[in-house]
Structure formats: structure tokens, C-alpha cells
């Protein structure tokens, strides 16, 4: 049947390779092994999409805020987390496996809950105070993706926003009479400049900040352990103090007298 294709050895080899590749591809495809799909039991994929329109990012500021507010919102959130981290921990759970738990009402907890990897309560529970680095880096990644995404669709986004502004909350008009292409170009240029600056600045700034605070992060568990040992030592001291008070009662048991006592 394949005799036209089997005229020479080279063609045979090529065909064999192609068949093997197809079989393998089919096998992989049938298994559904894709890093873009959520693994079993998790709501988010291993490779998250780099876009701001992902439903998992619905609670983040770039979904709802105006573009001009994005840098301020992002940097303000990061600033809050870092300032919070620079303060000594409020809670040290000496008797728990995680002695520096992350409080859900903290700034870091707030950001973590808005990001897909930690939206699941079980995953969130695994975080501790010193995971500030990974949470902020993920937040940065999502921010950068939003900027890149916006830059890619800049024309459409600006036009869409213009039409929405014109609609003022009502139905979006088909035509905006006062629409000026020159204004569109200027606005695009302004946004692009800001996007470029933010992309150039956000990561180095965060890396520098993390460089400073990660030394604290590395020593913080040790410091917390020492704090717990200090507290335990104080408790022991108080306990032994009570024991020494009790030992003063020993004389009451001395020399229990009876008729056979010689000494």
C-alpha cells in the first residue's frame, strides 16, 4: 500500500520517525498532561496566564482601577507589607510547629489571599510571616503581566476606556463624535512611557527591598526560637522558685520522733 513511499531507505526511516512522533503526541494528548491546566485538586494552573483578564485575578486592583492609579496602588501595597515586616512579629506561637504564623488580617495575608496560589485556605495556611519574598514576587509578576498585557492591547484598551467614559455607565455608544485620533496617539504614548518605566523600575526596586529584608527573614526564625527559649527559661525559673519555696518545708519532715530515736 505504501509502496510509493517505500521506494528508498531514507523515506522509510523518515516515515518511521514521523509515525513514532505522532503516536507519542497522541499518547500525551490523550493523557491531558498540560501545565496550563489546573492539576487535580487545585484551582490554579502551574503556569498561570500572563494576562489581567484571568478570572482568578478578579480581586486585584488592575481589574477595576484606572490605569493611572495602578503604580500607586501596587507600590502602596508593597510598601505596607515591607513596613509591616520590618516591625517585630506580634505573635510568636512557641508551642506550634509554625512559630511565626501569618495573620490573615495582615497586609501580607491580604495580598496572598488575592493571588491564586494562596486563595485556597489549605495553601494559605502553609504560609508564614517569612514568606514575604515569594508572595511579593508573585504579586510583582502579576503586576508586570498586567502592564505587558495592557501595553500589547493598548490601542484597544484606550479606545474602550474612551467609549466607556463617554457612556458614563450607560450603554456604550457606537460612535463618539468628539473622538480625536491625535488624542489617542498622545494618550497611548503617555501610557507606554509609564508602562516602560514601571516595568523597568518595579522589579529592581522590589529586589532591592527584598535584599534588605531577607537577612531579617533568615535570622527571624532563630530570633523567634530564642524568644521562645527566653520565655521558657523565665517559666522554668518561676517553677523552680516555687519548688525551692516548697523545699523549705522539708524541715517539717525532719527527725520524725519515736522511742527508738538515738540521734
Amino acid at each position: 500500500m505504501f509502496s510509493p513511499f517505500l521506494r528508498n531507505e531514507q523515506n522509510t526511516k523518515t516515515l518511521s520517525v514521523l509515525i513514532i512522533v505522532c503516536i507519542l503526541g497522541l499518547a500525551v494528548g490523550i493523557r491531558g498532561h498540560s501545565l496550563a491546566a489546573p492539576p487535580q485538586g487545585k484551582p490554579y494552573p502551574i503556569l498561570e496566564p500572563c494576562t489581567r483578564y484571568e478570572p482568578l485575578y478578579s480581586s486585584l486592583f488592575f481589574k477595576n482601577e484606572k490605569f493611572d492609579d495602578w503604580p500607586e496602588k501596587y507600590h502602596e501595597k508593597v510598601r505596607e507589607v515591607i513596613e509591616e515586616y520590618m516591625q517585630p512579629p506580634e505573635t510568636i506561637e512557641c508551642l506550634e510547629p509554625n512559630i511565626l504564623p501569618l495573620e490573615s488580617n495582615s497586609a501580607l495575608g491580604d495580598i496572598a489571599l488575592s493571588l491564586p496560589p494562596w486563595q485556597d485556605p489549605n495553601d494559605f495556611a502553609k504560609l508564614d510571616r517569612n514568606d514575604v519574598g515569594i508572595v511579593l514576587l508573585e504579586f510583582l509578576r502579576v503586576y508586570e503581566c498586567a502592564l505587558v498585557d495592557h501595553n500589547y492591547y493598548l490601542v484597544l484598551d484606550v479606545i474602550e476606556e474612551r467609549f466607556k467614559d463617554e457612556a458614563g455607565g450607560g450603554p456604550i455608544p457606537a460612535i463618539v463624535p468628539s473622538f480625536d485620533y491625535q488624542e489617542l496617539i498622545v494618550e497611548m504614548e503617555r501610557r507606554r512611557k509609564k508602562i516602560l518605566q514601571e516595568i523597568a523600575v518595579a522589579r529592581p526596586a522590589l529586589e532591592r527591598a527584598l535584599q534588605i529584608i531577607t537577612s531579617i527573614a533568615r535570622l527571624s526564625p532563630l530570633d523567634a526560637e530564642m524568644h521562645c527559649l527566653q520565655r521558657a527559661s523565665l517559666d522554668l525559673r518561676n517553677g523552680l522558685g516555687l519548688a525551692s519555696d516548697a523545699s523549705v518545708c522539708l524541715p517539717k519532715g525532719w527527725d520524725a520522733k519515736d522511742v527508738l530515736r538515738d540521734l
Partner: peptide
């Protein structure tokens, strides 16, 4: 304090009635 008190008690005194 605890150690010396216990030692004093057992070395010089009888905690159980008897001779020595």
C-alpha cells in the same frame, strides 16, 4: 536551694523514724 535543702535533710536528719 532545692539541692542543698534536700542534701541537708538527708545527711543530717532522719526522714523516716529510726536510728541512723
Amino acid at each position: 536551694m532545692v539541692g542543698q535543702c534536700v542534701e541537708e535533710s538527708f545527711e543530717r536528719h532522719r526522714m523516716i523514724p529510726g536510728r541512723m
